[in-house]
Amino acid sequence: MTAPRFQRILLKLSGEVLMGQGQFGIDPATCDRVAAEVKEATETGLEVCMVVGGGNIFRGLAGAAQGFDRASADYMGMLATVMNALAMQNALEKVGVQTRVQSAIPMASVCEPYVRRRAERHMEKGRVVIFAAGTGLPFFTTDTTAALRAAEMNCDALFKGTSVDGVYDADPKKVASATRYDTLSYDRVLADNLKVMDASAVALCRDNHIPIVVFNIREGGNLAAVLRGEGTSTIVQTQA
């Protein structure tokens, strides 16, 4: 693996990625595969932090739709992200990568509280920092959390690992003729309501000049390939 184009990135994983082929929960084999790819990235000197969603366990919006109070449902979703963060921590440390989990909701017996300067020191020492519990506040998605943490950590890019290999003009799972974009502007994503990340996250990245790289994390080796500039992805950035 050649040297990546970036020095520091934030990797955003949806909770669904950790399900593997299952319908819910956490698949240890998938965690191990992702951990191996993150390790490969860190061995080039790349500094990595992560945000993991909680949709494989509980999704706040879905819970609210079923009758839960929205704020309570969102807090439940935040706790689900802590479980996923601990699963990824376990997988990373099994392959020799030092990690720290920092939670926006303090839970001292489980992980560190989120402290920006402490997180930066961890990353400078080569540790992978996994940010859990979202922003610690309801009504914000983990996409917004990822954009916020990427800005706070001065990341060069936000890599969003999904189940598709980029951003399309239609759902490629439903429309066979859907066309993938190689690059997009932030404003185009917002104006056309393309489902890259939620609008708050895209605006945060735009305002802080953080490119968003959307790629398929389910394909083995794809993270390394995209970091080399060789894999299939869509890059959302400022365009002239």
Rank of each mutant, 00 (worst) to 15 (best):
R180P: 01
L11G: 07
R180C: 05
E37V: 10
A146C: 06
I235W: 09
L158I: 01
T2F: 07
D27M: 02
G166Y: 11
M197T: 03
N222E: 15
R218M: 14
P113I: 01
L46V: 10
A225P: 03
T42L: 03
A3Q: 12
Q89E: 11
Q237A: 15
M78V: 09
G161C: 09
V34F: 03
A151Q: 12
G22L: 08
V17W: 01
F6C: 10
P106V: 12
A225G: 06
C31W: 00
M107I: 14
M78K: 08
D32P: 00
E124R: 15
D187E: 15
T238N: 15
V82T: 10
V101S: 04
T81Q: 10
D192S: 12
K195L: 13
N90L: 08
T238K: 14
V110W: 03
Y114W: 07
G22M: 02
C205R: 05
S103A: 13
A203P: 00
F159S: 03
R127S: 14
L46I: 12
M19K: 13
A104H: 11
Q102Y: 05
D207V: 10
G53C: 08
A191W: 00
V175I: 14
R121M: 07
S14N: 04
A29D: 14
D187Q: 13
G136C: 10
P138E: 01
K195N: 15
A85C: 05
V95W: 04
K160A: 05
T179A: 15
I210W: 12
A104V: 05
V17A: 13
G15Q: 09
G20F: 14
G25H: 13
D27T: 02
R118F: 00
Y186P: 05
F159K: 02
R188Y: 15
I9S: 08
T232C: 02
E219W: 14
R206Y: 01
N193F: 14
R149N: 09
I9E: 06
M83S: 11
R206T: 05
F140V: 14
K125N: 08
N56F: 10
T162A: 09
G166F: 08
G45C: 03
A146H: 05
V167L: 08
V167Y: 04
S109E: 05
M153E: 15
K125A: 14
T30M: 09
G22D: 10
G53M: 05
S109L: 02
M1H: 14
N154D: 15
T30R: 03
I212C: 04
A29V: 15
Q66D: 13
S163D: 15
A91E: 06
L194W: 08
G67M: 04
D187F: 09
Y186H: 07
Q23C: 01
A73Q: 00
S185H: 11
R218K: 11
S163I: 08
D156P: 01
M107P: 01
D187M: 08
V34L: 11
Q21N: 15
V82N: 03
E112M: 08
